[in-house]
Design a protein around this nucleic acid. Structure first.
Length: 262
DNA sequence: ATGCCTTCTAGCAGAAGA
């Protein structure tokens, strides 16, 4: 089973790219972030015509997450528990059954948190804490579980082309990185790092200042695997070429291949 | 040191993103 995550930065602006990505990578499951539209405005019929079931959790203008799956989606849950008034559409979860096993997948759009020193940063940290609490519960199910998405965390210095540029940024603050590590410490593995410890692997390049042309990127889109899923890890890849398409998202798709349905 | 660019909504500028 091939699972992808991609922050599309507006699904309406990126529908053509999504079609091209689905055709060329042929994923079984796709977790999308930053839809930037309400559920009713999601191009559901167009995506279904490409062979995918669709579950969305959208909102007007900002955020918005979705899961696309060739196989039916079951037990879909929208929103991260413990919000207490948090109305951002940043979390959706579902289950996919195959002949060879079950996979639970979450599509996550973690808060950016900038600028540090405003309420946005503690909101990010609190959201990371809530995610950790929920993930601990999910791990008790002992399922194949993949937490996919734009975590808005640069885990390590080697995950940035120029770490010095990010020292004052919410994505690279010690508090953000420590919480990401705490999440991993529950028993998850960062799928890409399990396969490749090389530097220079990025999933985001800013639109400004020719960041992509200069390969001034960061790695913030991640696929975290439960122990059961780790045992089935076959490969990972980053579709860097997608950033070179005309009018691209600033993020590219990241994929993991799990030996689940052959 | 700051803006650089792209998206959204609203309305012809500002917020948000990272």
């Amino acid at each position: 089973m091939r699972i992808a995550t991609w922050n599309v930065n507006s699904i309406k602006q990126r529908l053509e790219h999504l079609g091209e990505f689905l055709k060329t990578s042929n994923p079984d499951v796709v977790c999308l972030q930053e839809l930037k539209c309400v559920d009713e405005a999601f191009p559901r019929l167009e995506v279904e015509a490409l062979g995918y079931n669709v579950a969305t959790h959208g909102q007007k203008a900002y955020n918005g997450v979705a899961i696309l799956s060739k196989r039916p989606l079951e037990d879909v849950r929208c929103g991260l528990p413990g919000g207490d008034g948090d109305d951002h559409a940043r979390y959706i979860e579902g289950v996919i059954s195959t002949d060879r096993g079950v996979v639970r997948v979450a599509s996550i759009y973690l808060p950016n948190g900038n600028p540090v020193g405003t309420p946005k940063f503690p909101y990010k940290l609190a959201w990371l804490d809530r995610l950790t609490v929920h993930a601990r519960e999910l791990l008790k199910l002992e399922e194949n579980l993949v937490l996919c998405g734009d975590f808005n965390v640069i885990p390590e210095p080697q995950d940035a082309a120029d770490p010095a540029l990010w020292v004052n940024d919410a994505l690279f603050q010690p508090e953000s990185r420590a919480r990401f590590r705490a999440l991993l410490d529950l028993g998850f593995v960062d799928a890409l790092r399990a396969c490749n410890d090389q530097p220079g692997l990025y999933t985001f390049w800013d639109y400004q200042a020719g960041a992509f042309q200069r390969n001034n990127g960061i790695r913030i889109d991640h696929l975290l695997l439960s122990p059961q899923a780790q045992d089935k890890l076959q490969s990972t890849s980053i579709r860097k070429d997608v950033r070179g398409w005309e009018k691209p998202s600033d993020h590219v798709p990241v994929l993991v291949e799990l030996k689940i349905d052959g």
